[in-house]
Amino acid sequence: MAGKTIQPEGWAPALGYANGMLMADGTLHVAGQIGWNAQKVFERHDFVGQMEQTLENISTIVRAAGGEVSDIGRLTWYVKDKAEYLAHQREVGDAYRRVFGRHFPAMSLLVVRDLVEDEALLEIEATAYIAKG
C-alpha cells in the first residue's frame, strides 16, 4: 500500500516533493523543513528565529497527519554555520522547548556547505510514528 501525502491545510503547495508521507504502518517521514512560513516566505532572518519556525513547520505536519510532537522519534539537522549554532546554544534550547517542550528524540546535526533556498540557515527533517486507533 502506498503512503499518504500529508499537506497541511492552507500551506502553499510543495513542488516536486511531499512535506510529509504517512506510511501504512504509521511511520511519518517529514521532508526537510526550513524557516519559512506556510506561504514559503521568510519572516525570520536569524538562526534561532528560523530554527523555531522550522520546528513549528515540523509540528504542523505531524499534527496534520494525526500525531503530536511526542510521536517524533528522530530529527536530522543540517546547519550552514556551526559557529552560529554554537554561539546561540541557550537561545536554541529555549526556542526548541517552546515548540517541542521536553521531548528530545534521537538527533543528528550535520554542518553543510549550502542549502537549496539561499535564505535558509538550516533545514531539519523528521521521522515520527503515529499509532492507529
Rank of each mutant, 00 (worst) to 15 (best):
M107E: 15
T27A: 08
P105E: 07
S59F: 01
V62W: 00
G32M: 09
G32Y: 03
G26D: 04
F100D: 02
A106G: 09
A120V: 06
R63A: 14
V116C: 07
V92E: 10
Y129A: 06
A83C: 09
I34W: 02
Y85V: 12
D114F: 06
E43R: 10
V116T: 15
E119L: 12
Y96T: 07
L121D: 00
I34G: 04
A12Q: 07
W36K: 10
S59T: 11
T54F: 02
V62E: 01
H45P: 01
A2D: 11
D81T: 11
W11V: 05
A31C: 13
Y129I: 05
S108G: 14
A18D: 14
M21Q: 07
F100A: 04
W11G: 02
L110V: 10
R74I: 02
I58M: 01
A106T: 12
L121T: 04
R102V: 08
W77S: 06
R98T: 07
A64F: 09
V62I: 12
I6D: 00
R113G: 13
G67W: 00
H103G: 03
G10W: 07
I34P: 01
H88L: 09
V92T: 09
M51Q: 08
E56V: 11
V62A: 00
D81A: 12
T27W: 00
I6W: 02
R74F: 14
G32C: 10
A120M: 08
P105G: 06
M107L: 09
A126H: 00
D46N: 12
N57A: 04
N57R: 07
L122W: 01
L55A: 01
N57C: 05
V69D: 02
R44I: 10
Y85F: 15
